[in-house]
């Protein structure tokens, strides 16, 4: 019980991210179907993106007058009233009121690149299906073993 309170409950989010990541990794290694492997890859990458974004979350600490965890850092867009003042005097902005923009930027591009990668993976899958008439790993390996010359033709 002590272990639970000390090590699991405060890090509940991280535990779930790691579990989702393990699911994806397991699917990538163990599943025989190529599309299942790609779904596993996407789950794996979104788990890591989730972890990064969660690092940027900012509860505001004591700044907003509440206890940590009760208040919430807002989105990293400066409010209209504040914006005009801030363009001359940067110290007007209390950066702890906002979520950290850096993980957002890195992960935003990672998502778009991730879907491009997924597209390439799916294209390879279709190409394999065209040549071997199957998207099951063991069947493809059996076909390659049965006819070694197929690797070179086309």
């Amino acid at each position: 019980m002590h272990f639970l309170n000390e090590h699991i409950i405060p890090f509940f989010n991280y535990w779930i991210y790691v579990i989702i990541m393990m699911l994806g990794l397991h699917a990538m290694i163990v599943k025989r179907n190529l599309i299942k492997k790609l779904i596993g890859m996407s789950i794996f990458s979104t788990a890591i993106i989730l972890f990064y974004v969660s690092i940027g979350v900012n509860n505001g600490g004591d700044i907003q007058g509440g206890k940590p965890g009760e208040t919430h850092g807002t989105i990293p867009v400066i409010e209209h009233e504040l914006a005009l003042e801030a363009s001359h005097d940067p110290t007007k902005i209390d950066f702890r009121r906002y979520a950290n923009p850096l993980p957002h930027v890195l992960m935003l591009t990672a998502i778009v690149v991730g879907v491009a990668t997924l597209g390439v993976g799916l294209a390879v899958t279709q190409r394999i299906y065209r040549d071997y008439d199957s998207i099951e790993e063991d069947e493809i390996l059996a076909k390659i073993a049965a006819a070694p010359s197929r690797q070179t033709d086309d």
Partner: peptide, 29 residues
């Protein structure tokens, strides 16, 4: 995981660092 900062901590190394502070304060300027 047990060495991580708590979820949403404002004083975690990632949020306390000079980089997010600069980005947030100077984007308008």
């Amino acid at each position: 995981v047990k060495d991580f900062p708590h979820y949403g901590a404002a004083d975690s190394p990632a949020n306390e660092g000079v980089v997010p502070r600069y980005y947030m304060e100077n984007t308008m300027k």
